[in-house]
Design a binder for these strands. Structure first.
Lengths: 344, 344
DNA sequence: CATGGTAATGATAGCGCTAACAGCGACAAG
DNA sequence: CTTGTCGCTGTTAGCGCTATCATTACCATG
């Protein structure tokens, strides 16, 4: 059996194939394909033509191994369905767009163990940087991150000690600020409604802490709380609100851990014909534009999501003014929006 | 200057470091770390201990190059903020979970050029499979996909010729079905409101085509249309609806290209005190649970998003019953939900 | 014409890992 | 005692690229 003339059309192509097809060395092909080094116009054309007609796609695995450079940036977030992270991703992509870097997303599902795995997995691809949500991580995760020798940016939250850099807001302060606004508006019998995962969604927990802190300072405490597990939805918000108001009819303010359940609560209150914001006020968190068309605008605080994405990507891409190298902590200031659900 | 005894603590570790630390060959370390081949319990322990204490993270780049195996599955979607794709991703992750495969997301922003780039980028990492939205791609993209030699699954839409496998619904039929339901309910003066990107969001376009087809069969045509560009939001839906009803006050049905703008329209209609669904009916598309808590439930059709994710991942993972190898087309059947906005 | 610079190309040696096979001791079967 | 088998470990040879350092041809300069 003789070797076939066409050496197996289904084998994936390598530089060598292109080099043979264009009559130059592999090195020259490599240079052309990466736009690096001097290559004459004629040769460049010939190589490009050969590559195109063969349908050659470079093997970045080999390239990365040889050059010790990987154009990937790992991004680890707790959830995709959250509606918070898409906007962060937008900010990241925007900035990375023209740097040659590519974001790669991993999802931790709010589980620290899972996060640790994802970090390990990501680091094993030797990315150029890592962006991850939150400053709380398992011991082992922190160790890996510290050892990795690449820029690490922890985002969303700055209440804690980052491994390297951090970009976010102080959720504790955000909670405090909201409480102050509510108290200033004259509400006194205040209740909280939110996720029942204090271990996992640390940021919601911190907001609540800040919130209660400010209440305490005014001599107040929460008159009731309602927790839930699972995803946030309008329906969930309605149900919780109904349950809480049934149990404690005389509350005059409902503080929600996020806008989605807050909006559900708002719709329920309006259905019931309650006087919002006169008799009862409501507030959420996140500034979700998506909900802007509701009959009444829910009071909220935006979390600077787009900006967080942008700044974190800038740090990874080494675009920060002043050429700072690492260990930067950027605190952003969320804006409070009283909407139509806190009286003025 | 003599070589320092500690060979530079900041250099990233390799198998060799672990092998030296544990007194066995690199090969044995490799075997332990991958749980492959026979290694005695004692040796295994020693190696794991050494790897852990050094904080060694394997280099998958080198591993992948050597083994010609990459445990990544590329997933290319048009947008993250769409709320459609997170659910697809959930289905994919679910199935891939225990296969050792990892999804990697790329975003094309509804642009064919961009998609082509992303495909190229993805293929250059030699993933084990590729899942991408839609069956319409640039010529070059189709060529690359066909050449890649890996399973390709085109999802969401099956109205077209897939490169390899496909999982989705027929949007044309979905549009038709909705039109039939609307006509059956007695509505006659029907208008369409949707995205103004017929070239990009082909699926919305196909639904509209099917919709108009069914109208035509009943001797009807759309009495008006309203297009918009940019993201979908409640506010957008409100504005469009107002504009359309101002221009054509006597329509009796509003067909929206997605639930988000449909919900906005619904809210506007309710604000205006219009008789829904008596005098005017509404319908959207997508079955977004997220909106379930609105005062009235919008008529819609779900797009089987979770199932699409699952099935596509099963194809990539080779989990399809019967051991089918490729070229499978799975058509799912969306369910019509009349909600509270089509009279019965 | 020697000299040196520059532009274009090629040869060589890995990058860090794994496939494939080879080696070796121990022990069972013939 | 030979032969085979099994369990464990090591050796060798790349995977497909790129960094680095030649090498060549060509031109300008004194």
């Amino acid at each position: 059996m003789s070797k076939p003339p066409t050496p197996d059309p289904r084998r994936t192509l390598t530089l060598r194939d292109v080099s043979e097809a264009s009559g130059v060395s592999e090195m020259t092909v490599s240079r052309v394909l990466r736009n690096r080094g001097d290559v004459s116009g004629a040769t460049r054309e010939r190589v490009l033509e050969a590559a195109r007609s063969l349908g050659y796609v470079p093997n970045k695995i080999a390239g990365a191994l040889a050059s010790q450079r990987v154009n990937l940036v790992g991004v680890i977030i707790p959830s995709l369905s959250n509606m918070v992270f898409p906007e962060v991703m937008t900010g990241i992509s925007e900035v990375l767009e023209d740097t040659g870097l590519q974001p790669v997303v991993g999802v931790s599902n709010y589980l620290h163990d899972r996060e640790e795995q994802v970090i390990y997995e990501m680091l094993s691809w030797r990315p150029s940087g890592l962006i991850l949500a939150g400053v709380e991580h398992s011991e082992a995760a922190r160790a890996m991150l510290a050892q990795a020798g690449i820029p690490i940016v922890e985002i969303m939250d700055i209440d804690g000690t980052p491994v390297d850099s951090a970009v976010g807001i102080s959720h504790r302060r955000a909670g405090r600020q909201m409480a102050e606004a509510i108290i200033a508006a004259g509400y006194r019998r205040i209740a909280f409604l939110g996720t029942h995962m204090p271990e996992q969604d640390t940021r919601a927990k911190k907001r609540l802490e800040g919130f209660e802190e400010a209440l305490a300072k005014a001599g107040l405490t929460l008159v009731d709380r309602e927790y839930y597990a699972g995803g946030s939805s309008l329906l969930q918000g309605r149900a919780m609100t109904e349950a809480l108001l049934q149990r404690t009819p005389d509350v005059d303010f409902l503080y929600y851990s996020n806008d989605m359940i807050g909006a559900g609560g708002l719709l329920w209150c309006l259905d019931q014909g309650l006087d919002v914001p006169g008799k009862i006020g409501l507030a959420g968190f996140n500034g979700m534009e998506l909900l802007d068309g509701l009959p009444r605008k829910l009071a909220t605080m935006d979390a600077c999501r787009l900006e967080i994405g942008q700044k974190s990507a800038e740090i990874i891409a080494g675009k920060r003014p002043g050429g700072v190298i690492g260990g930067e902590v950027i605190e952003l200031t969320p804006t409070l929006d009283l909407g139509d659900t806190i009286r003025r």
